[in-house]
């Protein structure tokens, strides 16, 4: 078992810089989720740790070892790919045994490990099938099995659930979490899905355009997002942002309403309020003109505009509510966030 350390990791393709100096210290047994929109460099980062992409500058350490120049096979890692990357001509058993056979392990030991993994993943009945005879979820489990039989120091997951349907994704997400806890293997998990990120990670690394926007626990990211980007990316439905003018202790909304400023600032700023932190209040300062309702059963999403402006707002109400469209609803804000208007960085409370 070993932790992972990234030191000022940089990746360039020619003149195009993909990653701008990533630093991270991942503890032994920790599960880190790297999350960001497509093209942010998260897969590149993972592939660099795996040894499938060369490092332009900086260092990668697994345990105490610098692995920059080691082959993927020498890094003692296992990777689960988005398309599973199973060997199509081999049975499930052969797929899992391949890496062990190459390492020259004895037949008895290989059989023991494969059986052990098959039991954990409930793959026993499928050991003699070929990948094409399996469903998506089963293939996913075989890919996991191929990773765990090797008892590696590090698991790398490259969007492993994005080819599954929604229900299976939720189920597999839990299984991956349980498995990782049980085996206690240091893991890096890459995804673009913020729900997956929130539920799986001990800590989240939010990546945007090759730069780490924030690196912290899911709750930290939710409660104290470091930037407008993180605030908008984490949480569903997404946070509402309004341009405000801060005067002393008050933040003035575009329609003139005054709210208590959550941080010290002067002049222009961006105010953030999560849809679930706005509570209906007849005397509340935030007035929203209701346009569309989305009934989710457990909650109701109200989409509208800040009264008298074109700024879109979303509010989440508990249970089934049915305010009519066109009506004005008033809300009292709960937790508010204030960001610098130019840089998008969080302003100190």
């Amino acid at each position: 078992m070993a932790g992972i350390k990234l030191e000022n990791l940089i990746k360039s393709y020619g003149d195009t810089r993909i990653l701008h100096g990533i630093d991270a210290d991942i503890a032994d047994g920790e599960m880190i989720v790297v999350v960001g929109p497509s093209g942010c460099g998260k897969s590149t980062l993972l592939r660099m740790v795996a040894g499938l992409e060369a490092v332009t500058a900086g260092r990668i350490l697994i345990g105490e070892r610098v692995v920059n120049d080691l082959e993927p096979s020498q890094r003692d890692i296992a990777m689960v790919f988005q398309n599973y990357a199973l060997y199509p001509h081999m049975t499930v058993r052969q797929n899992m045994a391949y890496g062990l056979k190459i390492r020259g392990m004895s037949r008895a030991e290989i059989a023991r490990r494969v059986d052990e993994a098959a039991d954990i993943l409930e793959l026993r009945p499928y050991l003699d099938r070929k990948p094409r005879q399996l469903s998506g979820g089963q293939r996913q489990r075989v890919a996991m099995g191929r990773a765990i039989v090797r008892h590696p120091q590090v698991f790398l997951f490259d969007e492993p659930l994005s080819n599954l349907d929604a229900k299976l994704r939720v189920q597999m997400r839990l299984e991956i979490r349980k498995l990782q806890r049980r085996l206690g293997v240091t893991s890096i998990y890459v995804t673009h899905d913020q729900v997956e990120a929130m539920t799986l990670g001990d800590r989240l690394m939010v990546l945007n355009k090759g730069v780490v926007e924030q690196f912290g626990s899911p709750i930290e990211l939710y409660e104290r997002p470091a930037s407008v980007f993180v605030a908008g990316f984490i949480g569903s439905p997404a946070m509402n942002f309004l341009p405000v003018r801060v005067e002393g202790d008050a933040a003035i909304l575009p329609n003139g309403a005054r709210l208590p400023a959550p941080a010290r600032a002067a002049g222009e700023a961006t105010l953030g309020a999560r849809p679930e932190h706005l509570t209906p209040d007849e005397a509340g300062p935030v007035a929203v003109e209701v346009e569309v309702l989305e009934q989710l059963g457990a909650a109701t999403l109200v989409h509208g505009r800040l009264e008298g402006t074109q700024h879109e707002m979303t509010v989440q109400l508990d249970g089934v509510r049915a305010p009519e469209a066109g009506r004005i609803m008033r809300f009292a804000p709960g937790q508010l966030h204030l960001f610098d208007a130019a840089s998008g960085k969080r302003l100190a409370d």
Binding site: N83, L86, Y98, G99, R146
Partner: peptide, 27 residues
């Protein structure tokens, strides 16, 4: 042949020659 299958074999520890005979050639 999907690139990731070859990469998976590389991570599994197969060198280029072994990859060729156990993965590429059968496929």
């Amino acid at each position: 042949i999907p690139r990731s299958v070859i990469e998976a074999a590389a991570i599994d520890g197969a060198g280029p020659v072994r990859r060729f005979f156990s993965i590429v050639f059968p496929l």
